Computed example of a mutant assay.
Amino acid sequence: MRSRPSRAVEAQEAVKEIILGRGLAAGDPLPTESELMEELGISRNSVREALKALQAVGIVDIRHGFGMFVGRMSLAGLVDELTFHSRITLQDGRSHIAHLVEIREMLETGLVQKLIDLGSDADLSAAAEAMARMEEEAERGGVSPEIDRLFHDVLYRPLGNPLVSQLLGAFWDVYHQLRDQIGAPDETPADVARRHRDIYAAVTAGDKSAAIAAVHAHFEGVRNRVARLGSVG
């Protein structure tokens, strides 16, 4: 026999229905706690428990002193969970990091092809600027994680899909939080810059085969480092 959902769980669903039913968007104000208590007919504790749960997944944004608002989508919870489980698997010789790298590599392989399909409609000026900055850093002896992340972010921006940036950012955040376990890159800064340049050049040339090969080459160093982690375990 299925158990009845708790009042807090029912309240969570009711708040979601309020957001959807009223056509509210990210940043729009929500009813106050008291208004929700009256409208939903439940206790303050149940309302607060529901709001905290919705805040944890980014559906509700509670700003103390200002009120409650519809949250803006965030993958922070996903990042924390993936990072934690990746650390667990590192302890017994299995690595979720390898799976994450594989997924991101497949994602970017598809993205470069879609980017090429845009042709002249794709404004790659921001990617060109990021590429130039990366090469300047490489000449000075190091490529910063920030410019590496920026390049991938702005490269796919012409696709007009905000989820792409968020997903790539989530993968990056997990990888960055595990950087101490993964270790330093094997490639020289010049090699790192060159691999990114190869991706950019293939995209601007409209060469899908070269773009796919460049993406695979870009991730080769990461795959090798992660593979060594598994062999050590």
Rank of each mutant, 00 (worst) to 15 (best):
S144E: 08
L167C: 12
A170I: 05
W172G: 04
V143S: 03
R197N: 04
D198L: 06
P145K: 08
S165I: 06
L159P: 03
R157W: 10
T188S: 14
F171K: 09
L163D: 12
E146H: 13
L150W: 10
H152R: 09
V143F: 00
V174C: 04
D148C: 11
S144P: 06
A170E: 02
I147L: 12
P185W: 00
L150K: 15
V174M: 06
D153F: 13
R179M: 12
G160T: 07
R157Q: 15
R179P: 06
R195K: 12
P158C: 08
A190P: 06
D191T: 13
D198C: 01
R195H: 12
L178K: 05
S144T: 15
N161K: 08
H196S: 04
Y175R: 14
Y200D: 04
S165G: 15
T188E: 07
A190C: 09
P145V: 05
Y175A: 13
D186M: 04
H152Q: 07
Q177D: 13
D153S: 15
G183R: 02
T188P: 02
P185F: 03
D148N: 15
Q166N: 13
E187G: 03
R179H: 09
P162E: 04
A193P: 05
V164E: 08
R197A: 12
H176M: 06
A170F: 05
L178F: 00
E146W: 11
P189Y: 05
D191L: 07
D198W: 01
P162A: 01
D153L: 15
V192N: 09
